[in-house]
Simulated scan of single mutants.
Amino acid sequence: MTTLNLLCLPYSGASAMVYSRWRRKLPAWLQVRPVELPGRGARMAEPLQTDLQALARQLAGEQRLATAAPYALLGHSLGALLAFELAHELKALGCPPPLALFACGTAAPTRREGYDGENWREPKSDEALKSELRTLNGTPEEVLANDELMSLTLPILRADFLLCGRYAYRQRPTLGCPLHVLGGDADRASQAQLLAWGRETHGPFSLRMFPGGHFFIHEHEDPVLGELVAALEPHRMSA
């Protein structure tokens, strides 16, 4: 039985361990490999990064050996942009391409209007960051009111928003792997912004919408995981 590795990149403010519960729910042939970013989780002692392309290059060097086995990339929100840039950086290193790239919960790299722009290119205050968390509706109010937790979370979130806000799309040859986009029907990304991901690959493309807002991947976890398994199972059989 061929095992596929699913390299998962976290969203803003999160550790890669937000994907750890998927390990219990996915079949044995699909191995979840959370990719931790500097400055959080097991890498808390490392400096936070605010340059997305520099971070993607760093991660490509770290994950280079992982590409010797069949693998796919997945990211949600910030993680989707990072997974996309990581795919290009791995390609530049001459690594085998991913079997698929899953971009969840964010607009395509060329359609970031309403996301980044001038508004997020400079560091935001604690209150502005908390306001954004409330808008995204993924953080309980009791967590937002916990000063100790917020003192740990907000510096990470501030840096992660700068990663997105200072992101600059670069024109390059398109990827060749299948690109699967997952979106929430109440999230801020429009269908046109999600469909624009299709321009980033000359391989197969799909868009699947789920009920819910920005954190639909947790709200509707089982259908999301079912989508991943359905997309990757044919690759397992042919790998």
Results as ranks from 00 to 15, higher is better:
residue 99 L to D: 02
residue 107 A to N: 14
residue 134 R to A: 11
residue 92 A to D: 15
residue 65 L to D: 13
residue 58 Q to L: 14
residue 135 T to N: 15
residue 103 A to Q: 02
residue 55 L to C: 14
residue 96 P to M: 04
residue 138 G to L: 04
residue 118 E to Q: 09
residue 56 A to L: 08
residue 129 L to F: 06
residue 74 L to W: 00
residue 109 P to F: 12
residue 103 A to P: 01
residue 124 K to S: 15
residue 115 Y to V: 01
residue 99 L to F: 01
residue 69 A to M: 11
residue 106 T to V: 13
residue 132 E to K: 00
residue 98 P to G: 13
residue 127 E to D: 14
residue 128 A to H: 01
residue 91 K to F: 01
residue 73 L to I: 09
residue 113 E to F: 05
residue 72 A to I: 15
residue 99 L to A: 11
residue 81 L to K: 00
residue 109 P to M: 13
residue 57 R to T: 15
residue 79 G to W: 02
residue 67 T to P: 12
residue 96 P to W: 04
residue 97 P to F: 14
residue 79 G to Y: 00
residue 75 G to W: 02
residue 102 F to C: 08
residue 99 L to Q: 04
residue 101 L to D: 13
residue 140 P to I: 07
residue 85 E to L: 02
residue 51 D to A: 14
residue 127 E to L: 11
residue 60 A to L: 14
residue 104 C to W: 00
residue 133 L to K: 04
residue 75 G to C: 05
residue 63 Q to A: 12
residue 118 E to M: 05
residue 64 R to G: 05
residue 121 R to V: 11
residue 85 E to Y: 00
residue 132 E to Y: 01
residue 50 T to Y: 07
residue 56 A to V: 05
residue 90 L to G: 12
residue 134 R to S: 08
residue 141 E to M: 11
residue 137 N to M: 07
residue 117 G to A: 13
residue 85 E to I: 00
residue 127 E to I: 07
residue 133 L to T: 07
residue 50 T to R: 03
residue 105 G to Y: 04
residue 82 L to W: 01
residue 118 E to R: 06
residue 144 L to P: 07
residue 100 A to P: 03
residue 106 T to Y: 06
residue 133 L to Q: 10
residue 100 A to I: 03
residue 128 A to T: 03
residue 72 A to L: 14
residue 116 D to R: 00
residue 55 L to Y: 12
residue 103 A to R: 01
residue 99 L to S: 03
residue 86 L to Y: 09
residue 106 T to W: 07
residue 83 A to W: 03
residue 138 G to K: 00
residue 71 Y to D: 14
residue 110 T to A: 10
residue 76 H to Q: 08
residue 131 S to F: 11
residue 129 L to W: 04
residue 63 Q to V: 05
residue 70 P to I: 15
residue 110 T to R: 04
residue 141 E to F: 08
residue 104 C to D: 02
residue 85 E to M: 01
residue 110 T to N: 06
residue 118 E to D: 13
residue 117 G to P: 03
residue 59 L to I: 11
residue 107 A to K: 07
residue 61 G to E: 11
residue 134 R to D: 09
residue 89 E to T: 12
residue 51 D to L: 12
residue 132 E to Q: 01
residue 137 N to S: 15
residue 92 A to Q: 13
residue 86 L to P: 07
residue 121 R to P: 04
residue 58 Q to R: 06
residue 81 L to S: 02
residue 102 F to H: 03
